[in-house]
Design a binder for these strands. Structure first.
Length: 433
RNA sequence: GGAGGGAUGGCAGAGCGGUCGAAUGCGGCGGUCUUGAAAACCGUUGUCCCUUUACGGGGACCGUGGGUUCGAAUCCUACUCCCUCCGCCA
């Protein structure tokens, strides 16, 4: 196991050569994501950096030569003072150049780290969620003989959800579950993992729930999205915002064997998010909490297979909703709605009767080599060449939202909730919560 | 928390401050031999960056950062991680 310093080093999100020789394309794609791209600034920093680099390396080369010759002279007993002075002079010049270079390098890294991933050509171009495209819908929306109630009302009335006490114990945006509902959440985790490991071929992982900064840089959460994270005071540790972070970084700084790809992992973790900037949004219920449970699917694959793997991964997530008989639709996100790191994303949205609308319950993305570059994850092909892997992940599923969806879709006129058929074995055959 | 030991190439394991990017073994790759395989033998085998149309040239990297020196894998220092022992603790 290689140890890491507190700070991650040389991270490059897009290949600098690629950016350099495809400036127009990069600018176009970045700006289609709604983020300005200062191509002139890139060119300026890039040129300055390379100039300084070759200058200082030239001086180093001379210094190395002088030092070597000094060694030989010393051995033969000849005077070396003149050589030593020359070397000291060179060191001074190198020091000056390197100081300048370090500043430029930092600026360059910062610039690169803040360029989002480029979207795939199959992604619809558009500025807002209105440009997302619905690909398919599944299931029959339940018909009620009464107005369906929101899950938080059902829960609070039944005494199985308690937001008041959660606020006392922790604060806003937390929940306490009791009884059958607590069991439902636990059972769903197990059900999802059982399906993904048993039927879809994922390897089960139980990762740490605290991760260091290098891991977060690897997945693209840092440096740009620091405010979304909970940091542990006094430590270089953060609460995981998703299992994607520990799972992706499982193979940070590694070269994988192509013959063993794709690697498929499934993990349950709680997820912690500050939800900075979401004040007033989804304040009621289980939809937007500081802490929620999620089963995450993650794949490491070769570039040629990554889009086929994305389809499969999305189907794996959908399979859970099908087994639970929850109606859903799947959409492809447009360029403007894509996350920072993603090249293509499918959102799976579950039907929520009380709001009579769909709610995102899974997000399945192909990051291509974006995270692999940041986290240095490569594979070695049969020809012996090393190449960056592609990483993909998706929720399979967000558990709290699944609970909410079950409550609302399976409610009856008395405000009770039926247990979905597929979960009955986990409830000792019981059919009500 | 206290006391020690350690960190070198895919792995194992050397390395008087100066031709050390690094001996050696294993593994990997190519070849000879063989009907084939094994064995044996021969050769080969790190990553990143800058530059060059190319051949090539140059730089960095021996856990990480800083320092000493004309010159550092080798010396000093701080940090991180790992191992052993003691204490404490789910």
């Amino acid at each position: 196991m290689r140890n890491q310093g507190p700070c991650a080093i040389i991270f490059v999100m897009l290949d600098t050569h690629f950016v350099r020789s495809n400036l127009e394309l990069v600018k176009k794609k970045v700006e289609a994501k709604g983020i300005p791209f200062a191509d002139d600034r890139f060119v300026a920093i890039d040129q300055r950096r390379r100039r300084l680099l070759s200058d200082s390396e030239e001086l180093k080369s001379r210094k190395n030569k002088v030092a070597r010759e000094t060694g030989f002279l010393k051995k033969s007993g000849a005077p070396t003072r003149e050589m030593e002075l020359r070397s000291i002079e060179l060191s001074k010049q190198i020091g000056d150049l390197e100081k300048e270079l370090a500043a430029v390098e930092a600026e360059f890294q910062d610039f690169l780290l803040n360029i989002p991933n480029l979207f795939h050509d199959s992604v619809p171009v558009g500025g807002d969620p209105g440009a997302n495209e619905v690909l398919r819908e599944w299931g029959d929306k339940p018909v009620f003989a009464f107005p369906p109630r929101p899950h938080w009302e059902l829960g609070e009335d039944a005494g199985t959800l308690d937001f008041g006490r959660a606020a006392k114990v922790s604060g806003s945006r937390f929940a306490v579950y009791f009884d059958g509902l607590a069991r439902l959440e636990r059972v769903l985790v197990q059900f999802m993992l059982d399906v993904h490991t048993g039927e879809h071929g994922y390897r089960e992982v139980l990762p740490p729930f605290l991760v260091n900064d290098a891991s977060l840089v690897g997945t693209g959460n840092l440096p740009k999205f620091k405010d979304d994270l909970f940091k542990v005071e006094g430590y270089n540790l953060y609460l995981v915002p998703t299992a994607e972070v520990p799972l992706t970084n499982l193979h940070r700084d590694e070269t994988l064997d192509e013959a063993r790809l794709p690697l498929k992992y499934a993990a349950y973790t709680p997820c912690f998010r500050s939800e900075a900037g979401s004040h007033g949004k989804d304040i009621r219920g289980l939809v937007r909490q500081h802490q929620f449970n999620k089963v995450e699917l993650l794949k490491f694959t070769t570039p040629d297979r990554s889009y086929a793997e994305l389809e499969e991964l999305t189907a794996d997530a959908e399979a859970i909703l099908k087994k639970l008989a929850l109606p859903f639709r799947t959409t492809v996100l447009c360029s403007g709605d894509l996350s920072f790191s993603s090249a293509k994303t499918y959102d799976i949205e579950v039907w929520m009767p009380a709001r009579a609308d769909y709610l995102e319950i899974s997000s399945c993305s192909n990051f291509e080599s974006f995270q692999a570059r940041r986290a240095h994850i490569k594979f070695k092909g049969r020809d012996g060449r090393k190449e960056f892997v592609h990483t993909l992940n998706g929720s399979g599923l967000a558990v709290g939202r699944t609970v909410a969806a079950i409550m609302e879709n399976y409610q009856d006129a008395e405000g009770r909730v039926r247990v979905p058929e597929a979960l009955r074995p986990y409830f000792g055959g019981r059919d009500r919560l």
